[in-house]
Nucleic acid binder design. Structure first.
Length: 284
DNA sequence: ATTTTCCCCTGCCGGC
DNA sequence: TGCCGGCAGGGGAAAA
């Protein structure tokens, strides 16, 4: 599932290839992609526009047009955005929209489960900021994002720490897979109340999140089943996962069998001995 | 105000 | 063999 590293991988590939290009035509195959707007309105806002920059906010991919206008794309669960130098030989399965560029290149948005969306962002900078506020929190890889900011956000929440780091308003871009990996690296049980974490633990988790996201970007993201990068290729990060999807296998650190549970309505993988539910006491 | 539940959507898989 | 319930999960709306 595309999380921050996957979206960032696609962003970098597209930025290299479509920056400065003009969108000659957009075709919406599945009207639901444009909801709650109509496909006609979306196409009218996109057609003929020049892409000045390809940016990212959390898991949102953004094409910046002149005059502050911007198209946001969200891949959700199974969305794929695929650039090709020319038209595809045949439409990819589950095609929902396609874009023709002025250099003959094509981009297709396909999406088996149809959760993905495309919509226009507010052009006014203040309105844009309002749009993100409350919806998408700080960028975990931003230089300015300190451990203190993270600690503050975590300390005043009582829910399970995994639910807190999955909350996009708390920290942008972390999904189920990297939440599991970061909590394992920080040796923190996902059901620990966020506010119960010590200063050291919060610092460790902040570092672990940033580390896992960076390593994942370096590996081109994780292709569990649906994810492909902007050129249709698989990532390599799935081979670096330590606990996620490793139920029944030995923990890479202590050889204890990894277990799968359910936390915050999400499948959750942990090492019961590296991630004690009650730190300080022995065992789990 | 925060936290939890439900919903969307389709393919896949285990059980009977 | 084939059907069917359950599961997968991002994010947002609704409910608690």
């Amino acid at each position: 599932m595309p999380e921050l590293p996957e979206v960032e991988t696609i962003r970098a590939q597209l930025a290299e290839r479509i920056t400065g290009r003009t969108i000659r035509e957009m075709e919406v195959v599945d009207a639901k992609l444009a909801e709650p707007a109509t496909p006609e309105a979306l196409v009218a806002a996109v057609r003929g526009r020049r892409i000045d920059a390809v940016t990212r906010r959390g898991k949102y991919l953004i094409w910046e047009f002149p005059d502050g206008d911007a198209l946001a794309l969200h891949l959700r669960m199974t969305g794929r955005l695929h650039w090709r130098p020319g038209p595809p030989e045949e439409p990819p399965p589950f095609l929902r929209a396609s874009f023709d560029l002025d250099d003959g290149a094509t981009m297709t948005f396909s999406d088996l489960r149809r959760f993905g969306r495309a919509w226009m962002l507010p052009a006014d900078p203040a309105d844009r900021e309002d749009y993100w506020r409350g919806r998408v929190g700080p960028e975990p890889l931003a230089r300015s994002y300190s451990g203190r900011d993270f600690a503050q956000a975590v300390a005043r929440r009582s829910g399970p720490v995994k639910a807190v780091i999955l909350n996009q308003a708390v920290i942008a871009g972390v999904g189920n897979m990297y939440a599991d990996e970061a909590l394992f690296q920080a040796r923190i049980h996902p059901e620990r109340p966020a506010s119960s974490l010590s200063d050291d633990e919060t610092k460790l988790l902040h570092r672990a999140i940033r580390d896992r996201l960076r390593v994942a970007i370096a590996h081109g993201g994780a292709s569990i089943d649906d994810y492909r990068d902007g050129l249709g290729n698989k990532g390599q990060m799935q081979e670096q996962l330590r606990v996620h999807l490793h139920e029944g296998e030995p923990c890479p650190r202590c050889r204890t069998t990894i277990v799968k549970t359910r936390v915050a309505q999400r499948g959750t993988y942990t090492c019961p001995s590296c991630q004690p539910r009650h730190p300080g006491r022995s065992g789990s």
